[in-house]
Nucleic acid binder design. Structure first.
Lengths: 117, 117
DNA sequence: CGATAATGATACGGCCCCGTAACGATCGGG
DNA sequence: CCCGATCGTTACGGGGCCGTATCATTATCG
């Protein structure tokens, strides 16, 4: 049950959603931040800084800073692991779940508007 | 012939392509730059700074700077309009077309791998 | 216990992008 | 011919993100 999408459709979808994101003004997440956010909300917990860094192929400070920014926006929260106090567990928030859901709506809506070819 | 895609599929597609983009290292375009690039390559010419600015809902310096960066990457070129020398016409390049094509391949390939639900 | 490893955070220097405001070049109407 | 309008660019101050190197804290193992 793979999703059949033609290259021209893919490009129009990508462009339209990006236009929406640019004009949204609120969701000014970078590509990396988006990848981190979606990984946190789509993959099974627990999530750690080190795990996300290796998953994305970036260094740990990148994750730390991204979590700082996204934390200010209320999209994620951090808590120290009680069993291994070196670890930090990244947790989801209501605002983060809403942002992810908003993105899903955006993509599906724009996909629905796509013509053939 | 609209494209039917479920929210969960949209999110997994968005995440996977973003993971690819992060690890690509070469295509480190911002969201705005991506929107500009795709607009130039998907909509009919001619494209001007002012036209792109109003199309994206951003200020003109944003377009100028984005064209500077993308020009260094060889993704677009600029030329003054001979009939109205105030205007600048943005032109496509081979490298830009290849980059757009690469993105299309990425999205279609990841869409094809999507499972149902 | 002491040494070593592992985790996440921080400091630093550098680069890119932003929005506002101004600028030079060019066109067009009176 | 001149003056206002338009177009794209640049200057400026501010903020964010990057990678490397280093740090404090905690765990692990001999």
């Amino acid at each position: 049950m793979a999703l059949e999408i033609k290259p021209s459709q893919a490009l129009r979808l990508w462009r339209q959603v990006h236009l929406d994101l640019v004009q949204d003004a609120q969701s000014d997440l970078s590509v990396r931040q988006t990848a981190i956010l979606l990984t946190i909300y789509l993959e099974l917990p627990p999530h750690t800084v080190r795990g996300l860094a290796s998953r994305l192929g970036v260094t740990k400070p990148v994750i730390t800073r991204a979590l700082d920014s996204m934390g200010k926006l209320g999209l994620v929260t951090r808590r120290r692991d009680e069993f291994d106090k070196r670890n930090v567990v990244i947790q989801r928030t209501v605002a983060g779940a809403l942002a992810v859901e908003h993105l899903a709506d955006l993509v599906t809506a724009r996909a629905r508007e796509l013509g053939p070819a």
